[in-house]
Amino acid sequence: MNEPELSDLGAFVAVTRARSFRGAAALRGVSPSSLSEAMRRLEAQLGVRLLNRTTRSVTPTEAGQRLLDRISPALDDIAGALDTLNSFRDSPTGTLRLNVPTIVAQRVLPPLASRFLRTHPGITLEITTNDTFIDVLAAGFDAGIRYDESIARDMIAVPLGPRTQRFVAAASPGYLAEHGVPRHPTDLLRHACIGHRFPSGVLAAWGFVRKGKTVKITPSGPLIASALDLELHAAESGLGVIYTFDEYLRPSIDRGTLAPVLEDWWQSFSGPFLYYPSRTHMPAPLRAFVDFLKAEGQSG
């Protein structure tokens, strides 16, 4: 039996971790067909099926899982050994793959990413947006960005961006003139509310806090969406009250296309964190980004 190519073994690990040929291909910058061919070649050489393939998912067989468990550490060690060469360069090179929430990608990360990439021209920053918590390492990412309540305790977390954020409520001046201004969160039960549904299918509840008292509202109204741009346009068009991140609504409030409501009840929360699993070797691009964030925090 011919020895399998190292590249085919790497393709197997990538597909198994991503649970998808398409997802693994996107992370590796190759075509799904090339990964599929690599898997056919590897399975033929080894004489065993390594993956169970369906139209919806790719999962390892028992043999595939055993192979994955044995070769993953070795391939990670090889990647780490090659990455140590970065220490001999003036600036690290390579790709840093991050999985981040939509709001962070749109309103928090852009200025940080620009400053980081100007400082490290040899690094490529690859951003994927996802509003659910995932196992970043298994999905092929170097790190993720999430809020504190969704970060597992065994992860290393580094502050990123504003340390305090808040949810705010607002509506167009025309809507408020026609329907009145809510004075208490329970008044929203009589108003048209623009709801947001998470990718998990859960409808986001609206939380308000004042003097230690918390009130939660389930929004009801003419629109429920999972796209903030659509929700914002609906609110500015006078369809109802919107509730989301301050950073997202602030430009509209400053322009006067939206007016804030229930300001005494706005809820504050901790800002986002970069998180990644603890491991002996940290890829040079990730180390550079962590050092950059820590320096930004000290200078801020």
Rank of each mutant, 00 (worst) to 15 (best):
F167Q: 10
Q45H: 03
R197C: 02
D246M: 01
D131R: 01
I151Q: 07
V215G: 06
A192E: 14
F273E: 02
R163K: 03
V168Q: 05
D76N: 08
S172Q: 09
K211L: 04
I156E: 12
S7F: 08
R40A: 13
F198R: 07
L274N: 06
S150P: 01
L6R: 13
A79D: 13
E236I: 08
D8Q: 11
A26I: 06
L223D: 13
P260Q: 12
P222F: 15
K213W: 11
L137H: 01
L51K: 08
A26P: 07
D142W: 03
L293R: 04
P101A: 07
S114T: 14
D291C: 05
P199C: 03
I224Y: 10
V30N: 03
F133D: 06
T102K: 10
I194M: 10
G212V: 05
P121K: 05
N86C: 15
Y276M: 06
S20L: 11
F208R: 03
Y243I: 04
T59R: 10
Q65R: 14
S150C: 03
V168T: 05
L223K: 04
A14Y: 09
R56W: 07
G80N: 02
R19S: 11
M39K: 14
V136G: 09
L109N: 08
R28W: 01
R97L: 00
I242A: 05
A225H: 04
